[in-house]
């Protein structure tokens, strides 16, 4: 379970997150939508402490952290509970696909080598890239790189995987394979928080869609509610614009 209580993030005078309260059940698939620059990515980055939140409490699993006075060890522990998938993949350029996935198990979880690589191979199998075990990121397509990025997040056995616009940097031809893998994870009831502009993914896969604007949760509910019966004018406005370019 994930619980955010009055989570805020200020960059100087700019308020990017303005007191977010949110509870996510284990196994829930949550998709976060909203206009650019409204704090969607920042929200995910705060949970993973890639950004230090200004205030609020973050609870993931049985770990609860007061965001503004989190110690180094609390931050590390929170990162171990969560896994992050980056928009630009951010695979370790000096490591092969297999090493990228095994890295966390080896270094952070201190698994013995053999066990870590065996687990990494299983994941490669699962993401359909067993033949790319020894390939370096530079030699893989965007779609393959992002699948390894997701594989790296899967290796963590994390409470939640945070997806920050995972398909936004991809050429259109690779989007489907990445979304397909995410659907596979969703049907295995992996808890996920996904920031995306892929509205059809949100409609088909999400248990709950959250619309964020101006650093606040404006509206949330099952996709059928949000997409077909939005209540807030801002949600209606956003959906009208985005569905015009990305019909579901």
């Amino acid at each position: 379970m994930i619980k955010l209580q009055s989570l805020s993030k200020h960059f100087g005078k700019a308020v990017v997150l303005d007191g977010i309260d949110l509870t996510i059940e284990k196994g829930e698939i949550v998709v976060i939508i909203g206009p650019s620059g409204t704090g969607k990515s920042t929200l995910l980055r705060c949970i993973n402490f890639l950004e230090q939140p200004t205030a609020g409490t973050i609870t993931v699993g049985d770990l609860s952290v007061e965001a503004d006075r989190a110690s180094r060890s609390e931050i590390l522990a929170m990162r171990r509970q969560t896994a992050f998938v980056f928009q630009n993949y951010a695979l370790f350029a000096n490591k092969t696909a297999l090493q990228n996935i095994a890295e966390r198990l080896l270094v952070v979880d201190r698994w013995p080598k053999e066990k870590a690589y065996q687990r990494a191979r299983e994941i490669l199998e699962q993401i359909g890239l067993a033949d790319k075990a020894d390939a370096y990121p530079a030699s893989m397509s965007g779609g393959q790189q992002q699948r390894v990025g997701i594989g790296r997040a899967m290796a963590a056995g994390a409470e939640v995987i945070l997806f920050d616009e995972p398909t936004s940097s991809l050429d259109p031809e690779w989007v489907e394979e990445v979304l397909g893998l995410m659907k596979q994870l969703a049907s295995a009831r992996q808890t996920m928080m996904v920031v995306t502009h892929e509205m059809s993914f949100a409609r088909d896969v999400a248990d709950r869609v959250i619309f964020i604007d101006g650093g606040r949760i404006v509206e949330q509910g099952p996709p059928s509610e949000i997409f077909y019966h939005p209540q807030d004018p801002r949600t209606k406005d956003f959906l009208k614009k985005i569905l015009a370019t990305n019909p579901v």
Binding site: L91, F92, A93, V108
Partner: peptide, 22 residues
Amino acid sequence: DRSQTEAALSIGMTNGQLMRRI
């Protein structure tokens, strides 16, 4: 690239580990 550091941090590496390994 900054993204390399972020990826290393995101999986829970310490500063020393991310320097040495990445």
